[in-house]
Design a protein around this nucleic acid. Sequence first.
DNA 1: CTGTTCATGTAAGAAGTTACATGATTTG
DNA 2: CAAATCATGTAACTTCTTACATGAACAG
Lengths: 183, 183
Amino acid sequence: MQELTPTAKVILGCLRLGARNGYEIKGAVELSTRFFWGASFGQIYPELRRLEDAGLVTSADDAHGGRNRRSYELTPRGERALDAWLKSTDEPLFAYRDEGLLKLFFGGLLERDAVLAGARATRQWFEAALAFFRTELEPRARAGAGERDDFPLLTLEFGIALLEFIVGWWARTEARLDEEAAP
Amino acid sequence: MQELTPTAKVILGCLRLGARNGYEIKGAVELSTRFFWGASFGQIYPELRRLEDAGLVTSADDAHGGRNRRSYELTPRGERALDAWLKSTDEPLFAYRDEGLLKLFFGGLLERDAVLAGARATRQWFEAALAFFRTELEPRARAGAGERDDFPLLTLEFGIALLEFIVGWWARTEARLDEEAAP
DNA sequence: CTGTTCATGTAAGAAGTTACATGATTTG
DNA sequence: CAAATCATGTAACTTCTTACATGAACAG
């Protein structure tokens, strides 16, 4: 059983949770996993086909009126592959990329005021992201969540806490740079 | 003046900070920016050539004994391009990808014990990363830092604080899952 | 004299984004 | 009837990693 591609992981999981076609998978990703695991149409549709060729999903025509539509579900092999991945303890893929931090790394090349301006702009960008999470994503996730713990909501809370951490770090850094500017 | 590619940004900055050739740039990246901005040889060498073609760097033969070596420095245009990028407030590139979190997102598909085991494995992986930062990276960064604030050290401190946050979050999540397992 | 470090590069392929192209259905 | 949503797909391009290939100099 060969490794699942990154996009295959989110596709199989979303199908298992009830998504039926590429469009619904994309919708689920945008609402929930997007910030830690994205997928575009340009990845989803070809990958669905490869998964079918590999026997992990089956598809059926699901036209609705004159509208073209194809519905997918996991095969037993697909279920096993998903389960095996979910239980595997291989070292998890992790990637963090942050242009604001790269600019700060080169802060010695600018005057302090310019570095401070950059820090402020970066913090504001993260604050906007945090506001979006709280106003657009969190209410929906809470509405959809069961009374016991709900994993999609849990991961969203991670995102919010992460953004709070980052915003706080930049705010502290601004204060520190400000202090040292006028001692 | 066209946009710098992601790898060009770190190359120009490293050259400006004193790196002389591709090998030294790679060394600097591994020691410092790697966790938020990586670059492989397969990116660095071709990009150096493109930057030279674009007139942002110049190169000279710098053979050392019979050993092949080429040294690079910024041209005035390269300096301006670096400066413009550092001062720009375009929305910064930011990407976060986390397979442990994706597995947790699909936690409803597994028994609670399996989810807990996954959480533990993820936390341990981040703890190992944190230990590496503290024992391998931080001492070097402190040794190289000036007495006033030093930006490379500052970004490393961000990395450490970020990993501490993540480890703490997973530890709290494990406790929460454990509680709910046996109420 | 052996292994590590210094040093440069290419080729193949994986992964992902963006833009384009198409068209039906539903909602206001 | 217009705009939004539903729905699928392809093509071109960018970015990045990995593996390979080569070889000199230096440290033990």
